Computed example of a mutant assay.
Amino acid sequence: MSQPTNIFQSKQKQARTGHLNQLVHQVGYWQKLSQQIQPILPQPENWQIACYQHGVLIITGENQAMISQLGYLQQHYVAQLALLPAFKDLQKIQVRLRITKEPVIIQPQQEAHPVSIETQQMLQGAAEFINDSKLSQAMRRLASVIK
Rank of each mutant, 00 (worst) to 15 (best):
S2W: 10
Q3W: 08
P4A: 15
N6Y: 06
N6G: 10
I7W: 04
I7V: 15
Q9C: 04
S10A: 09
K11N: 12
K11G: 11
R16A: 11
R16G: 15
R16F: 10
R16C: 10
T17I: 12
T17P: 02
G18C: 02
G18T: 13
H19N: 15
L20F: 15
Q22Y: 05
L23G: 01
V24S: 03
H25K: 14
H25L: 10
V27H: 01
V27Y: 09
G28A: 15
Y29F: 11
Y29P: 00
W30A: 02
Q31E: 13
K32T: 14
L33K: 01
S34I: 04
S34K: 00
Q36H: 12
I37A: 04
P39C: 03
P39E: 00
P39R: 03
L41M: 01
Q43T: 12
P44Y: 13
P44N: 09
I49L: 04
I49Q: 00
I49N: 01
A50C: 07
A50W: 09
C51G: 15
Y52V: 05
H54G: 03
G55M: 06
G55Q: 07
L57Q: 01
L57M: 07
L57Y: 14
I59T: 02
I59R: 00
I59A: 07
N63K: 14
Q64M: 14
Q64S: 15
A65H: 13
M66H: 15
M66F: 11
M66I: 06
I67W: 02
S68H: 10
Q69K: 15
G71W: 02
Y72P: 01
Y72K: 10
Q74N: 08
Y77I: 09
Y77Q: 03
V78H: 06
Q80G: 05
A82T: 14
A82W: 02
A82I: 01
L83I: 08
L83K: 13
L84Q: 12
P85W: 05
K88S: 12
D89S: 14
D89M: 04
L90F: 01
L90G: 07
Q91K: 10
K92S: 12
I93M: 00
Q94T: 09
Q94G: 06
I99L: 12
I99H: 12
T100G: 12
E102P: 07
E102F: 06
I105K: 01
I105Q: 06
I105C: 05
I106K: 09
Q107F: 12
Q107A: 14
E111A: 08
E111Q: 12
E111F: 06
P114I: 04
V115Y: 03
V115A: 14
S116Q: 10
S116P: 08
I117E: 08
E118G: 11
T119H: 02
T119G: 05
T119K: 00
Q120R: 10
Q121S: 10
A126R: 07
A127V: 00
A127D: 04
A127Y: 05
A127P: 05
A127G: 04
N131T: 09
S133N: 11
L135Y: 08
S136A: 01
Q137F: 02
A138Q: 01
A138I: 03
M139G: 03
R140V: 09
R140T: 05
S144T: 09
S144W: 00
V145N: 15
I146Y: 05
K147A: 09
